[in-house]
Design a protein around this nucleic acid. Sequence first.
DNA 1: TAGAAGTGACGGAATGTTCACTCCGCAGGA
DNA 2: TCCTGCGGAGTGAACATTCCGTCACTTCTA
Lengths: 194, 194
Amino acid sequence: MSNIPESKRAAILYAALELFAESGFHSAPMSRLASLADVGVGSIYRYFADKDELIHAVYEQVDDALQRDIIKSLDSTLSPRSQFIQLVANLIYYLKAHSREFKFLEQYYNSPYGIEKKRVKFSPEAFVDQSNPIVSFYANNVDGALKGMLFQLYLALTFGPIILLVRDSLSGLVVLDEALIQQTSEACWSAIKA
Amino acid sequence: MSNIPESKRAAILYAALELFAESGFHSAPMSRLASLADVGVGSIYRYFADKDELIHAVYEQVDDALQRDIIKSLDSTLSPRSQFIQLVANLIYYLKAHSREFKFLEQYYNSPYGIEKKRVKFSPEAFVDQSNPIVSFYANNVDGALKGMLFQLYLALTFGPIILLVRDSLSGLVVLDEALIQQTSEACWSAIKA
DNA sequence: TAGAAGTGACGGAATGTTCACTCCGCAGGA
DNA sequence: TCCTGCGGAGTGAACATTCCGTCACTTCTA
């Protein structure tokens, strides 16, 4: 019950994020994970029932951190336009700086593991949950600044371009500098503003 | 040399598309593919050197068909706006109607298999290839109708939302009816128009 | 033209490899 | 001397790929 077990658990999670992001779930043997985390194979199973549980645990951690960053970037005293542009720009900066997390999330949501999570997080019913700051941004539509679209369409128009662009940036196809990030944020705003 | 071998090859490709789209590359054993295609395991290896070659062959087929559909949908006699909206709407219809192809392509481009293809197809250098109708649409920028952005950004703003929306439609999170498709096309246009 | 011999597509059992997961003995603290 | 967290060899299952006998069909020959 000391914090040593927790730090071992943390080491496993950290190594798992790196290995999964780099190699994909299917090419990340538990044995390789063990040596990367500097831990015996058996010890991994002391903290996680199986590989699936480990994958979900990594997701929870990554998602928590991302969520916290997004919330931090929203400032409801700003105009809707400024609020939105700040949100998009911040998100791009974050994902660019956390490429492991980005790659992991992409995999997770595109695998059987993440399907259920996606459904819960992004369903039309989730649109009612005002405690989520992103949801409430779209739902409140302050001053009628937005076009008045389906929640799903807002999400697609906002996150779709971001995802592709960050992907390209990680592949080296594009240099995501400040100017480009600004331009992207504004273009996304054009797509959803009234 | 009769056409029987070719039709067996075609049967394997067809079954592979279905199986890969449904189960993913890693959960699609060759044995299951064989029984789905109504073929012996050994026969698959008569037509394809290994699983990788098969995956790439499926990709070529799927991509060809998609390319042909896109080209068909472009009509350079229309205004840039109409041309673009038709392109987007058509693409959404196509992907919605060809969910197997869509799922396959998503997997392919997000796996080690497709990385090289993506680099070749979507690199900044590809922006010069005027024989590709999509490229020339952005590159020519008739009447200065577009904002004048990086090729990569055009692609992200156009295809990003489409991909997310079609994904949601396939998960049943959204009903992609004609009105929504129209709305999406116009929103994408707002993002890139001058 | 009957039948023998050759050809190559085909199926699927057999093989070897890779992995997730288990089990058992060990080290060190109480 | 217990007890507890640990490591890593061992186990069995799943899989890609190979190998070889079978069979339908063609070509040759008397």
